[in-house]
């Protein structure tokens, strides 16, 4: 089953504006947020966002680049991966 969803993972020191910055960038690219969770790992703030990429206005590579740049400004690392990698690893 092919799906058009991706997981955005944001990691870094917690600060004002991370959620706003990243979600703003997603909205700009027309990526709908389907689910969102966050947690703490020691000092690290980790946010995981499931997004629908079927209607995005830019390529996935471009979206990744924009998020990476925005993340850099916020002092966080951002990864974007098609959800299949998680599905293959964790679901039989």
């Amino acid at each position: 089953m092919q799906t058009d969803r991706a997981v955005v993972t944001v990691m870094g020191r917690d600060r004002v504006g991370i959620v706003a910055g990243i979600s703003g960038e997603l909205a700009e690219a027309n990526a709908n947020i389907l689910d969102l969770a966050s947690t703490k790992m020691g000092d690290l703030f980790v946010m995981m966002i499931l997004i629908d990429i079927s209607g995005i206005k830019v390529s996935l590579a471009e979206l990744k680049e924009r998020l990476r740049r925005r993340g850099e400004g916020l002092g966080v690392q951002v990864m974007v991966q098609h959800e299949d990698v998680f599905r293959y690893m964790h679901r039989v």
Binding site: V7, T9, M11, L34, D35, A37, T39, M41, V46, M48, L50, M79, E83, V85, F86, R87, M89, H90
Partner: peptide, 12 residues
């Protein structure tokens, strides 16, 4: 959605 632990495990 995947659990937080599953996502973190993969990222780690």
């Amino acid at each position: 959605m995947f659990s937080k632990d599953e996502i973190i495990e993969t990222i780690r």
